[in-house]
Write a protein that binds this DNA or RNA. Structure first.
Lengths: 334, 334
DNA sequence: CTGTTAGCGCTTTCAT
DNA sequence: ATGAAAGCGCTAACAG
């Protein structure tokens, strides 16, 4: 009765070693790729033993000795996230899997410090920041040995490189396509939790400035009809036409609802443009004009950075994609 | 060259022990609450030392010795999830924090086996299943020592206990409020990824059966206007009225869009009801009739189960909430 | 009450 | 080419 109690003890590298007739060190070497210098025969014995035993190395054991877990944390901003969040996460998960890493998703909470602490607690090899992690946070992470991905670029203080700045610009151009009119930026109610709004506003403003138009107003639009109507009412002027650039499609839908309540004609009196090209935005009437973001560019950047991190190389300097990742979906609201 | 700058070695329990003039074992005892029997003075010395050093126990070290990580994995179904996912996750995170556990979010991928493997890889103390984990998966998890939460209840094969069954019932009743008409269930396109649909359909069918109505048709509605129109067209009958119970608000919006395209009057020819009471559903025109789910009931259940798990008690038998967690939001589509 | 001791499963020099 | 040995940071018996 040397063997099993019912308590299926997970096989350890020792079990594999025994079965393959080698030492644990050898097992470790071979299973970590370092063993390309072992004779084919030994390697096969080990590999076979491992797979027969369904051996899974213990993350804890490895983490303990390396001081680093095989985890990459994905931090999502605490806002509605239009493009299908799950697709993004799935893709990152797939990518991470290619490097033998597993993914942990974390939503940025109200308290940034707490979020950061939680993230660091995982001692991740890298952190994918979709927003919600400040510059300072990233610095702290870097000091702890965790690279932040995508490296730099994003949130680059409205320098014209920031994608969100470009989004703002593009929205302004679309709203001004048929001639000048006052522009309004419709933000989420709670700015704290919105990492993208400021840069987008800056993009809007860059365009109005360039064209000698008044600086865009800024309203905060809650996602209910009463609140939205109140907010829109503060900027709509009798008989005049305005163009509203919205934080996302949901806000845009709220602004449209408010416009209906206020008796504004769309797009004549009230032009609206959203961001994200959500499915629902194309199903409502009037169909939303919106900006589609091509995440493949972002994903390529992430893939490259991930590669760099796991290879201990410096982050590759992918050239900025310019605006090609933006597409205006022409709807009925602009 | 790797920056060796802030690589400040994290303090270990040994550092704390030294600073407090005790042994590591004592530190461990005191920091794990087991030390309520230590003299106040010793305890304070240790606690102070720990906080001065900003000591954070190493998850890996602890996991290695206990064979279990301080992690609870939240598994989200790979479908649109109406009720604000983040609120749910935040709440679970808060709850977990109360027990010193950290939360990992995982979206169920296309491949269930892979998902399960990833989950088990964390050696979690518990798994919160919002859908996406099958009965078998849960059994496997249980065998590995991870409790599944909420315990039982959910997905109870359409036995009238399953919340989704109740949702189906309630939708049917609402659609039949003004008299009998054929019912249709509008599911998500990809049923594999939909853990809730079947039970909801069963709920619908229970009502039509009870009232001697024909069994509900079932259509799969993609979230684009063309596909949705095609799908709805297969069930709409010239001059007749139908009631469509939708998987969620987004599907409902798609069905309404299809109805517009097909020239159906709502709610006369085409009554529609959604699930989730999303904000956007109340902002579109016509305003959606939908079912609001009170997640507080679910959260209470989760809280209780979590308590039970960490206390090694048997899961508390909270009495089922009946249907009180369901509220029909009366809109303009039914 | 507190410390000693023994690992948990793994990687990694350093010998052989 | 392979293995022995030394921990990584922590907890849990068991002594004292």
């Amino acid at each position: 009765m040397v063997t099993e109690t019912g308590q299926a003890r997970r096989p350890t590298s020792f079990d594999v070693a025994k079965k393959a007739g080698v030492s644990r060190a050898t097992v470790s070497h071979i299973l970590n790729g370092q063993g390309s210098r072992f004779p084919e025969e030994t390697r096969n014995r080990v590999l076979n033993a491992a797979s027969e035993l369904k051996y899974q190395p213990s993350p804890a054991g490895r983490a303990l000795v390396t001081g680093r877990s095989d985890v990459i944390v994905v931090v999502m901003p605490n806002t509605t996230f239009g493009s299908n969040l799950q697709d993004l996460v799935d893709e990152v998960t797939r990518l991470a899997g290619l490097h033998g890493l597993s993914v942990v998703v974390r939503f940025a909470g109200r308290d940034p410090a707490e979020t950061l602490a939680a993230v660091m607690n995982f001692r991740p090899v890298a952190v994918v920041n979709f927003g919600g992690l400040s510059r300072d946070d990233q610095t702290t992470l870097a000091a702890s040995g965790a690279a932040t991905i995508p490296s730099a670029a994003r949130d680059e203080d409205a320098s014209g490189k920031d994608p969100n700045f470009l989004i703002g610009q593009r929205m302004a151009e679309e709203l001004l396509r048929d001639g000048p009119r006052p522009l309004v930026f419709a933000a989420l109610l709670d700015e704290r939790t919105d990492p993208f709004g400021p840069a987008r506003y800056a993009g809007l403003k860059a365009v109005t400035d360039a064209r000698g138009l008044p600086q865009p107003a800024r309203i905060e639009v809650p996602l209910d009809i009463v609140g939205a109507t109140l907010a829109v009412d503060t900027v709509s002027v009798e008989g005049a036409s305005i163009g509203v650039a919205c934080y996302n499609d949901h806000v845009a839908i709220a602004v449209l609802a408010a416009g209906r309540t206020l008796g504004l004609a769309t797009p004549e009196d009230l032009a609206v443009i959203g961001v994200d090209a959500t499915e629902v935005g194309q199903l409502v009437s009037p169909r939303l004009t919106t900006i589609a973001l091509d995440n493949s560019v972002l994903m390529r950047k992430i893939a490259a950075d991930l590669e760099a991190v796991t290879k201990h190389k410096a982050p590759i300097q992918t050239q900025d994609a310019g605006r090609e990742f933006l597409t205006v979906i022409q709807g009925e609201t602009s």
